[in-house]
Amino acid sequence: MHFSTLALATSLLVSAFSSISAQELKAIAYVSAANSEVTGTISFSQESKHGPTWVYANITGLTPGDHGLHIHQFGDLSNGCISTGPHYNPHNETHGGPEAETRHVGDFGNIFAQEDGTAILNFTTHSLKLCGKKSIIGRGIVVHEDVDDLGLGGTPLSNSTGNAGGRIACGVIGYPSI
């Protein structure tokens, strides 16, 4: 009797996971800063658990020019953006640009702010996942003060952070309410 209950429960879990994994997965991060006007949203969508992830960012209040944008290890904002930790790097790679063969999973490169401070980024990637062991759900996302050198700067910080400077806005990647 105990075995059949366990088998039924396992069957129900497999069935539930199969129907969930067949649906589109979505996530969102609301970024803001304690000491500036920088705010925005970063949306993530993945049609299936093995498919590419679409990323759309819309951020306002930035100084004109390029700003590094990265996923960070922790979704902890208890000490502001600094408590998000280092870049999310589950494969133990060096920092790189979004097109580089060797890079951190969440190395998005730069987001370009227009003269009015608005920046939009829209791309798809196979490196981000919204489910599974290496999901980005619950991790931090950070907008940096400076240009990301994409790991090409030739300094120790280039290999770990892209010399992107201070953290000017951040948020936590989570499931949307709808």
Rank of each mutant, 00 (worst) to 15 (best):
Pro90Thr: 11
Thr161Trp: 05
Met1Arg: 14
Val31Ile: 12
Ala22Phe: 09
Gly165Cys: 11
Ala113Ile: 11
Trp54Ala: 08
Phe112Ser: 15
Gly96Arg: 11
Cys81Tyr: 00
Gly162Tyr: 14
Met1Gly: 14
Pro90Lys: 07
Thr60Arg: 06
Leu69Met: 15
Thr124Ile: 13
Ala27Asp: 12
Asn58Trp: 12
Ile137Asn: 13
Ala22Tyr: 12
Gln46Thr: 03
Arg139Leu: 07
Tyr30Cys: 01
His50Asp: 15
Phe74Pro: 00
Thr39Lys: 06
Asn163Thr: 08
Pro176Thr: 07
Arg139Asp: 01
Ala33Ile: 00
Pro64Ser: 14
Gly85Ala: 09
Val143Gly: 05
Ser32Glu: 07
Asn79Cys: 00
Asp76Lys: 03
Leu69His: 14
Leu152Gln: 03
Leu8Pro: 02
Gly153Ser: 02
Cys170Arg: 06
Gly85Asp: 04
His87Ile: 09
Gly61Pro: 07
Asn159Lys: 14
Ser78His: 02
Val172Arg: 02
Gly140Leu: 04
Leu13Asn: 03
Gly138Cys: 15
Gly51Val: 15
Ile137Leu: 15
Ser48Met: 05
Ile111Lys: 10
His87Tyr: 08
Ser11Cys: 15
Pro86Thr: 15
Gln114Trp: 01
Thr63Pro: 04
Leu150Gly: 01
Asp107Trp: 04
Ser19Arg: 12
Ala57Gln: 10
Tyr175Met: 01
Ile173Asn: 04
Thr60Trp: 00
Leu13Met: 10
Met1His: 14
Gly96Tyr: 01
Trp54His: 13
Asp107Asn: 15
Lys49Cys: 03
Thr10Ala: 13
Ala169Trp: 07
Thr53Arg: 08
Phe3Gln: 08
Ala29Trp: 02
Asn79Phe: 12
Asp149His: 05
His91Val: 01
Leu6Ile: 15
Phe108Asn: 08
Gly75Lys: 02
